[in-house]
Design a protein around this nucleic acid. Structure first.
Lengths: 139, 139
DNA sequence: ATACAACATTTGTATATACAAATATATAAC
DNA sequence: GTTATATATTTGTATATACAAATGTTGTAT
C-alpha cells in the first residue's frame, strides 16, 4: 500500500529505539537508567524549584506509578530528595541534590560522547527540515 | 550546543516510541504484544520457509533469549510452530501456523487503522526526504 | 579420534514496565 | 458540616526485558 509511508515510519521507529538503547548502555556505567537520567534532567531544568510527580509526568512518557519508583531509585542513590508539598499534601516536592547535579554532569558527558559522531552528519537546514517533517507527519 | 541536532533527535525518539506504544495498545485486544506481532510478520514474510531464532534476530532488535520466550508465547497460542532443524540440531525451525496467518491479518488491520490518519500527512516526496535524512543522520 | 573453540538456543535472575486497585488529600455540592 | 467527587501518588501484580551463565551441537586443529 503506502510503501513510502511505512519506510519512513520504519526509519523513525528503529532509529528512535536505537538511540535510547545506546544511551541506556552508555549510562549503565554509572548505574543510572535512561528514565532516571531524564528525571534528573527535568529536575535540573526546574532550576531549584521543586517538581511534583505530575510535573515530571508532563515531561516524559511514563506511568505515574513508575515515576514513583524511578524517583525511589534516585532518592536511594541520594541523587534526588523527596518531601511532602507544604501547600498540597497530596503532592510530592522532588528536587535534585548537589550529588545529583554532579552525576548529571557526568551522564551528560557520556551522552554527548555518544552523539558526537552524528552531530555533523546533517546541516542545520537539513535538521530543521527533518524536525518539521516529523512534526507534520503526526500533526 | 547543537540545538537543532537535539531537537531533531528528540522528535525521532518521542515519535518512534509513541508509534510502538500505540501499536502495542492496538494489538492488546488480541492478546498479542508488539514483539510477538513482529515475529509473526517475519515468519509470514519467509513464505513458508522455516526461520531460526537467529533469523528472527537479524530482523528485529531483541536479545536471543527473549526471542525464545516470545516464540514460546506464539507456540502456546498456536500461532507458530517450533521444530528442531533437521540439518543442524542447534537451530530451531520456526514457522507460522494457519491460525497465525489468520491472526496476523486481523492484527495488520488494526495496525493499518492506527496509521490511517497519518498516511497522507506527507507527500511521497516528503516521505522520501524524511527517510533519507534519517538514514544520512546515522550514516 | 579427541580436545577445544565457536555457534545456537535456552534458563536463571534481577530489574523495569503496564495496568488496576488502593490510599490519602483536596475540592465541590447540598 | 457531611458526603461525594476529583486529584495526586503509591502499592500490588503479572508480564517483559536485559544480561550472564548454562546447555547442547557443530566445526576445527592436532
Amino acid at each position: 500500500m503506502n510503501k513510502m509511508y511505512f519506510q519512513a515510519v520504519y526509519e523513525i521507529i528503529t532509529t528512535g529505539h536505537w538511540i535510547t538503547d545506546e544511551v541506556t548502555r552508555a549510562l549503565k556505567e554509572y548505574g543510572v537508567t535512561e528514565p532516571q537520567y531524564n528525571v534528573l534532567r527535568i529536575l535540573k531544568g526546574a532550576k531549584g524549584k521543586p517538581v511534583t510527580v505530575g510535573g515530571i509526568l508532563d515531561n516524559m512518557v511514563q506511568r505515574s506509578s513508575n515515576i514513583t519508583r524511578i524517583v525511589d531509585k534516585l532518592v536511594a542513590k541520594n541523587l534526588a530528595k523527596r518531601t511532602e508539598c507544604p501547600t498540597n499534601r497530596r503532592k510530592m516536592d522532588i528536587v535534585i541534590t548537589p550529588s545529583g547535579v554532579n552525576m548529571l554532569a557526568k551522564l551528560d558527558k557520556k551522552v554527548q560522547a555518544f552523539h558526537k559522531p552524528y552531530f555533523n552528519k546533517l546541516s542545520a537546514e537539513e535538521l530543521t527540515v527533518l524536525k518539521n517533517l516529523i512534526q507534520k507527519l503526526k500533526s
